[in-house]
Design a protein around this nucleic acid. Structure first.
Lengths: 239, 239
DNA sequence: CGTTCGTTTGAACGACCTCAACGATCGTGG
DNA sequence: CCACGATCGTTGAGGTCGTTCAAACGAACG
């Protein structure tokens, strides 16, 4: 059920079998959602954290005129709101962008887990800091990258993150979002996302069609995006 | 020396005198920097975390053409790179935007501190999650707010964060950044920042001149910005 | 077979950028 | 005390990237 979570952790840190089973013992019940269901709303008091095991989820904030900004995407194996363990409520919403399956972790279990295994606490702290690093890269994208580079960068990031949990290859991956969803990630209009995708396709770099990303030239795509994966902290880190 | 740090913590959480002195015991040496000195570079192995006690600092990332994006500002009392405690190196740089004074906390001291006082560990975890919340709001600003609203929003955020540590009032605060620095925070050109500031001034909302922000109409400014301070988690949170 | 949802394309507009010049302020040295 | 350079702020003119509005197209589905 949560194999992808362990894969994600082990991409960066060692994890003993004792630690692994301690994490398993902290698991609560599982839930499934249809696509486009907001399963956590900003401001709601929370006493569980949500681990995503299947599907793509997103964090988002809305402006009063209805325009929406997704601030981060989540892939299987990600703790989608480990933040709430310390924040106790969120400043943003969480939505399933495809059908999703999650596992709930009661905060009381997490308190016990992290007090008994302080190293797991630091591992999870690391995980939320990794979310912050992804946010920073998105700020850079929104602030300084053109629409083309920004679009290319998002697919480069997803390719890396999905391949860590066996959901992507170097030549492509399934990705069942609409162009409207994409535009909400990229801070662009859906019309302009469509045009950017066309230009990436015509440049022979990648195709996004029918819920599938095909990477014709990953190196070229990374060059356009100025993609430097160091913000994803892939090298093993002693902790 | 680190009174503003305790003020910042106590704005959100209770802190016993025992916890306070445990934090004091973890302090390392102090350092001072001139303005515009990059004091932590991306990729450098780190074994200390930096607490800002005086001045304004910023996290930034550069693109290959030299364009720069600041992804977060730090005010006195902020741990400017508590992230490195778990990440061990940063994906971005830290710069003093005004003359700054910092206190170093060796990671070994922080490990000891947080293992002995798990609640302080959660408080600091909260602090890095608050950084992530600020990042998300900036992603929203960059992606969906106009130049005027984005500029207004930044000053609203600073007013709140600085007043928590006694560096701002409802009618203004000292803020010795250049318009170029500001433009690197806002993902705009310096020219356009200048025009946005002019429009905010002509609308009777605020003036930024000579290193000083004067807030003529804070409510009006917040309205333009659609500023909702809940992302700063000001209400006391049991932890 | 009509409905719905997502994609694609065109034309016109506007927000922000680029480039360039000028002005204001301030510290420094003659 | 003034001249000077350096830095930062201000303004204008014109260009570009991305948006807005509108319409047509295609695929999936009951």
């Amino acid at each position: 059920m949560i194999e992808s979570h362990f894969a994600r952790i082990r991409a960066r840190h060692a994890l003993s079998t004792e630690e692994e089973s301690a994490i398993r013992d902290a698991m609560g019940p599982s839930r499934a959602f249809d696509a486009h269901h907001t399963f956590i709303e900003a401001g709601t008091p929370l006493n569980v954290s949500v681990l995503l095991v299947e599907g793509i989820a997103g964090r988002y904030k809305d402006l009063s005129d209805g325009r929406r900004q997704i601030t981060e995407l989540h892939v299987p194996g990600d703790f989608a709101d480990l933040h709430s363990f310390t924040l106790k409520q969120l400043d943003h919403n969480l939505i399933s962008l495809t059908p999703c399956r999650v596992v709930l972790f009661p905060h009381s279990n997490l308190t016990e887990l992290t007090e008994r295994y302080p190293r797991i606490g630091r591992l999870y702290w690391f995980a939320t800091n990794l979310d912050a690093a992804i946010h920073r890269e998105w700020v850079l994208s929104m602030g300084r990258r053109t629409a083309i580079a920004r679009t290319a960068h998002l697919f480069c990031e997803l390719q890396v993150r999905l391949s860590l949990v066996g959901r992507a290859e170097a030549d492509g991956f399934d990705f069942k979002l609409s162009q409207v969803d994409l535009s909400e990630c990229l801070g662009l209009t859906d019309v302009h996302v469509n045009r950017s995708l066309r230009r990436l396709r015509e440049a022979g770099l990648m195709t996004f069609r029918g819920g599938r990303v095909t990477l014709h030239d990953l190196d070229g795509l990374r060059e356009v995006a100025e993609f430097d994966p160091s913000y994803l902290y892939l090298a093993p880190h002693p902790l």
